[in-house]
Amino acid sequence: MTADHDVVRRFMAGDQGAVREIYREYARPMFSVAYNTLRDRSLAEEAVQQAFLQAWRAAASFDVSRSIAPWLYTITRRVAIDLYRRERRHNSQEVLDSDIAELPPGFETAWTVWEVRKALEEMPRDERTVLEATHFLDLTHDQAAERLGVPVGTIKSRSHRAHRRLAGLLAHLEEASR
């Protein structure tokens, strides 16, 4: 039995510590999947909360021999889609024809969101910070160096390591089981 299985067994037994362990391991990928669909921070938090509640209530049906990640992912995505629909219904007066194109991300896309976020959380902090600076904040190496207070050479080497590590993590992704 792996540690993953052990924590799931404890989760099923109602252990608060296990809830916290699972939260700290998976809340951010869950949040990313939800945010990717909902584009609203409080709604994404609501989705994570509801997903945990559903997982809690459905724990008896979970096969502990399997990984918990795809299970949590599936629940989160479903909850997020339901919230998305709820919000659209509440805002139905504002729905335009163009909304037809604004469908939630598909299953595989959302799974990639999950895996990329999970991979980022597994990376060393200094490498993740460089990726955030250069990709999300769109800083040049010089700008990132100034912002982070380290030499440009350090940024370049961290960036190289970060891309290589993340590429390695992403290149070996497993397909999500539906």
């Binding site: 949040f31 990313s32 990329v116 993340l166």
Partner: peptide, 14 residues
């Protein structure tokens, strides 16, 4: 994955 790195969904946290 590279495209997602530009998305705030990857960097925001609850």
């Amino acid at each position: 994955g590279a495209s997602l790195l530009e998305d705030e969904a990857m960097w925001l946290a609850p």
